[in-house]
Simulated assay, not measured.
Amino acid sequence: MKKITLLLFVAALPFLSCSSDENDQRGRNIKATIDGQTYIFNTLVVEQHPYNENGFEYTDVEITGSINNDPSRTISIVVMEGATGHDASWYFAHFHEEEPFVKDEHFITHVTESDNNYIKGTFSGTLVSTEDGSTQTITDGSFEVTYN
Results as ranks from 00 to 15, higher is better:
residue 75 I to R: 02
residue 118 Y to M: 09
residue 74 T to V: 03
residue 44 L to Y: 05
residue 2 K to E: 15
residue 51 Y to W: 09
residue 116 N to L: 11
residue 29 N to K: 14
residue 26 R to F: 12
residue 4 I to N: 09
residue 47 E to N: 15
residue 6 L to S: 11
residue 26 R to G: 04
residue 17 S to R: 06
residue 94 H to A: 10
residue 56 F to Y: 15
residue 101 F to S: 01
residue 115 D to T: 11
residue 48 Q to F: 01
residue 71 P to N: 08
residue 32 A to N: 00
residue 103 K to Q: 13
residue 105 E to I: 13
residue 72 S to A: 13
residue 24 D to A: 15
residue 128 V to I: 14
residue 112 T to C: 00
residue 73 R to S: 08
residue 108 I to L: 07
residue 28 R to S: 11
residue 48 Q to I: 04
residue 114 S to I: 01
residue 93 A to Y: 08
residue 55 G to Y: 05
residue 32 A to L: 00
residue 13 L to D: 06
residue 26 R to W: 13
residue 67 I to Y: 03
residue 66 S to T: 10
residue 34 I to K: 00
residue 17 S to F: 11
residue 120 K to F: 09
residue 52 N to M: 04
residue 98 E to W: 11
residue 123 F to A: 00
residue 122 T to W: 02
residue 35 D to A: 06
residue 4 I to V: 14
residue 108 I to V: 12
residue 30 I to N: 00
residue 136 Q to T: 07
residue 119 I to G: 05
residue 77 I to G: 04
residue 110 H to I: 01
residue 48 Q to Y: 03
residue 134 S to W: 05
residue 9 F to I: 14
residue 7 L to N: 07
residue 85 G to T: 04
residue 111 V to T: 08
residue 46 V to F: 00
residue 86 H to Y: 12
residue 50 P to G: 03
residue 80 M to W: 11
residue 75 I to L: 06
residue 148 N to I: 12
residue 25 Q to G: 09
residue 58 Y to S: 04
residue 118 Y to L: 11
residue 51 Y to S: 12
residue 118 Y to D: 10
residue 86 H to A: 14
residue 65 G to H: 03
residue 52 N to T: 07
residue 50 P to Q: 03
residue 127 L to E: 01
residue 26 R to N: 10
